[in-house]
Design a protein around this nucleic acid. Structure first.
Length: 430
RNA sequence: UCCUGAGUAGCUCAGUUGGUCAGAGCGGGUGGCUGUUAACCACUAGGUCGGGGGUCCGAAUCCCUCCUCAGGAGCCA
């Protein structure tokens, strides 16, 4: 009977068949240990010459790493096997010998691994990361579903609308001129939230910035939410609830994966309500006290974010930034014209920004002013301005970077391992 | 675009006061081993030292230039 390795504990002393690949092999004359993986787990299969016979033992001898195979055998509990169980091979069938498989058991460099990303995905270290990514995505969707949000799929091909034109990927679009790959779904969500009240989108996002850092990809996944009748404080509360929900789900469902990644679980268990909330002004004071030479009016650098997040044992909100360093659509602060109602969420342990959020400008004239001040063409924003003409209400929203969130929860140094096939400034293949 | 660092065997790397400096481990091949956990032991094949130019009796090593990669700045999630 064919089984999956994750279920092997249910079949002790039974005959089973497993289909999979060779993770590694060790041989010692008359006995061979073949570590078989099938995508759900791994198990040590043992070939013992006197029991298996010359012919089949010789077949095992031909196996190399990542060869595909079918094995039959009896499941045994055995402490000597790394996973607690082993399979006493009674028969074996090779599907293909993976001759000259490029990846070895020893360490490789990043470039080599990325060149072989299609094979690197099979490595033991990549399994927990992408399984956690999967669970995070499911947690996010559940969170929104349980909180009465409607999923709105926003377009990936767009006209010239968005934040700034310099960081867009362009492509020819029939007689309509240039189309751009979406760098946010927010403006469309604002339209949709006037129809459904609470909405979200979750899809790939594209930024043509020439960023070469461990926090950047040119194609990444962003979940964005938009809520009618939410002010900036309600917005932060929702973000906090969502992050706590995600972390709790991962702690509940992914203990084995976190363990394989050597993640310090206590750091994740700290992610509880309430998250500290500090204003931009307070953040500047703290940073200056700690020796940063940042001045009021400037955005935080990577080092500043690191210093700031290390002051707290959980993610921290920074709110109400100067308007000059933020996007045109953010709502003007009611009492301080130099600022806008917005917030970032900085993840702990130095990971930095994982959410950017704001209350949106709902006043037609103020929005029109901002568009003009940013040298944007009001014509392109006709429909966006319409939303302020026909039943405008206070509304807020945020965007969460999926890969940065996965990197933070997994405790990884670089976001490139958090997505199956990373797209970076000089990497388009595989 | 700018700053810093790197490029030596299929992979990971050592080797720079210029002179047995063409090296190791892994991987491949051959042989050995009945409990291996990156198994081990013996033997063996593999390289135009990123490309080009220069200095020198002599360059992996020094100089110039180009290419590629990594990290960071800017920008952002």
């Amino acid at each position: 009977m064919k089984i999956y390795i994750k279920d092997i504990g249910l079949y002790v002393d039974k005959e089973v068949m497993i289909e999979g690949w060779v993770r590694t092999k060790r041989s010692s004359g008359k006995i061979q240990f073949i570590l078989v993986r099938d995508g759900t787990g791994e198990v040590q299969a043992v070939a013992f010459k006197p029991e298996l016979g010359e012919e089949k033992f010789a077949i095992c001898d031909k196996l190399c790493i990542e060869s595909s195979l079918r094995v039959w055998g009896k499941v045994k509990k055995d402490e000597r096997a790394s996973t607690g169980y082993e399979l006493g091979i009674t028969d074996i069938q090779i599907l293909q010998i993976a001759e000259d498989y490029p990846l070895q058991k020893k360490e490789h460099g990043t470039q080599f691994l990325l060149d072989n990303r299609h094979l690197w995905l099979r490595s033991a270290g990549q399994f927990p990361i992408l399984r956690i990514r999967n669970e995070i995505i499911i947690a996010i969707r559940h969170f929104f579903y349980e909180n009465d949000f409607i999923l709105i799929d926003t377009p990936i091909l767009t006209g010239s609308i968005g934040e700034t034109a310099t960081t867009l990927f362009a492509t020819d679009y029939f007689d309509e001129g240039k189309a751009y790959l979406a760098q946010t779904g927010q403006l469309y969500l604002e339209a949709a939230c006037m129809a459904f009240s609470k909405v979200y989108c979750f899809g790939p996002t594209f930024r043509a910035e020439k960023s070469k850092t461990r926090r950047h990809l040119t194609e990444f996944w962003m979940v964005e939410a938009e809520m009618a009748f939410y002010d900036s404080n309600m917005n932060m509360q929702l973000q906090e609830d969502m992050i706590i929900y995600i972390v709790n789900q991962i702690l509940k469902k992914c203990q084995p994966e976190l363990k394989k990644l050597n993640r310090d679980i206590s750091k994740l268990e700290n992610v509880k309500s309430p998250f500290p909330r500090i204003s931009y002004d307070e953040a500047i004071t703290i940073l200056q006290k700690l020796g940063s030479n940042i001045e009021w009016g400037k955005d935080f650098g990577g080092d500043d974010e690191t210093i700031l997040t290390k002051q707290f044992d959980r993610p921290v909100f920074v709110y109400d930034y100067p308007k000059d360093i933020k996007a045109f659509y953010m709502k003007q602060h009611p009492t301080d014209y130099r600022k806008v109602k917005c917030n970032d969420l900085l993840a702990s342990e130095g990971y930095g920004e994982i959410i950017g959020a704001s209350q949106r400008e709902d006043d037609y004239n103020k929005l029109m002013n901002a568009i003009q001040k940013h040298n944007l063409n009001p014509k392109s924003y006709n429909w966006y301005l319409d939303l302020r003409k026909y039943g405008s209400v206070p509304h807020s929203g945020f965007g969460l970077g999926l890969e940065r969130t996965v990197g933070w929860i997994c405790g990884l140094h670089h976001v490139r391992e958090t997505i199956p096939f990373p797209r970076m400034i000089n990497r388009l293949n595989p």
